[in-house]
Design a protein around this nucleic acid. Structure first.
Lengths: 271, 271
DNA sequence: CAAATAGTGTCTCTAAGACAATATCAC
DNA sequence: GTGATATTGTCTTAGAGACACTATTTG
């Protein structure tokens, strides 16, 4: 009968075949567009960071930032590291989306991916400017349910337009998985990962958690509502929105002036 | 410039160090206890399947069933296979709980675990009888928040009593992770995995999805309510429970008779 | 003043909690 | 009848959607 110590010294973990493990990150940002009139409030756009692959496989196609898990870090730390390497900004928060482990999902071999959604604040990007590299760009996101029950994921940056089609498959427990019908020029199974990340993000925006992460320290309630509506792709009456978030925010004494209409009070998140 | 084909033939995935990947499963069952009186309804108990480890490390301690990911299967398939190998019954459903990847979580080396909760119906266990092996037993589960804000996880089988203490750490998005203060004799970080699985299970029982999976094809509403209450550790007034589930169930023409009180109509899940 | 947004009040409807009351069986 | 559960109905309250109305600013 071995002792535990003896057992461990004789144990060779290398004897078993193992997969490679990666973390892939869908990094979202909301950009405030330019005003169309001196008195109109600006629109918002939901953006997703994609990297143009410089190497095979899927060379020159667009993919989520991500990379291999390194010894000594957790998968979550790996996701944070990868997003930091690509953007130079620290994500406000990070949300697990799922594990993608279909054996044939990567032509390089047996590689399973831990997917995360992360939220990057517009503020932090404006400060450090992270999209100067031509191979990393923020794409405008559209994700809608089409008439035939499939989902259409559209990603646009200047004249580049990626259109993926996904079949939504309801699994147990109200979860939905997405099967790629057309990848739309996205590498690997990243179209499915992006769809899952968007679903997760929308789920978390319901309780306003995710909404705050897109916003600066202080914000107007209208700005908050626009963020919520941009993520969720629905609209609410302003009066009702104010009532619903009133428990989560607190007033400051400051106002936004000079907008061509009544000044809006700034709020901050209630701890 | 390589073609993709050339690139892949020169690509040696073995050059990079990789972790081992496992799936661990918290398999839950609800057992109907014996009646204490001819006319009283029986109580329910929530049970969790644990395996006594026959090998180092943590030899002779209790652990979740689980095992290494094999080539050609997804982590979910791995979880299903592992639970089938241990119990001979097919779980009704399986629910992802999270990835546990702290570098030092396994003394054998770099091993990350994909945790799942699975639901086993009492019916299927009664039919095939899966706990004849002395090294696999169903433990009664108790999981409560103690006065100091920590969580107490108690697992009992006959004279064996495992008591783990966990600190709940709120992460973003309303999620909670559990840090082990006392493992209570559970192997690896399995106390934390069990706590996370119970949290996930309770979350899914709110919308009755998980509740149906514990029940047979047809059931009384009282039986359904007891299952819900057993999982969630809360109680509801019967009148209100009936109203709340009325949208999810439909009547059958059958009744349960001979119980010493008014016969209860049998219901089935509404598709 | 006009255009636009900021902000308040109120009506209605629905869902959930509390609770009263009735129904039906085995012993 | 008694003790237990089964089942229905109703009162109340909280929250969300709809909408009317007022307030405030800049060009």
């Amino acid at each position: 009968m071995d002792t535990e110590k003896e057992f461990l010294s004789n144990y060779h973990i290398e004897d078993y075949e193992r997969p490679s493990v990666t973390a892939d990150v869908a990094a979202f940002m909301i950009r405030t567009e330019d005003k169309t009139s001196y008195r109109k409030n600006p629109e918002n756009k939901l953006l997703l960071l994609l990297i143009r692959r410089g190497a095979h496989p899927f060379k020159d196609m667009w993919a989520l930032p991500g990379g291999f898990l390194q010894k000594g870090e957790t998968v979550e730390e790996c996701a944070l590291r990868e997003i930091a390497e690509e953007t130079t900004v620290k994500p406000v928060s990070i949300l697990p989306v799922g594990v993608f482990s279909e054996p044939d999902r990567d032509p390089r071999g047996w590689i399973i991916s831990n997917a995360y959604a992360s939220i990057i604040s517009e503020e932090s990007v404006r400060q450090t400017g992270c999209d100067d590299a031509a191979d990393a760009q923020w794409f405008a996101v559209s994700f809608t349910c089409s008439a035939d029950g499939n989902y259409l994921l559209t990603l646009e940056y200047e004249d580049i337009r990626l259109e993926a089609v996904l079949a939504a498959e309801k699994t147990r427990f109200g979860r939905t998985t997405f099967r790629i019908l057309e990848s739309g020029g996205l590498a690997f199974d990243h179209a499915a990962i992006i769809a899952a990340a968007l679903s997760a993000l929308r789920g978390e925006a319901k309780n306003y958690e995710a909404v705050f992460d897109f916003l600066p320290e202080t914000f107007t309630l209208t700005a908050m509502q626009k963020v919520q509506e941009t993520i969720m792709n629905v609209s609410v009456l302003p009066a009702n929105f104010r009532r619903m978030v009133s428990a989560y925010v607190e007033e400051t004494d400051e106002y936004v002036r000079g907008e061509g209409h009544r000044p809006a009070r700034l709020y901050k998140r209630k701890k």
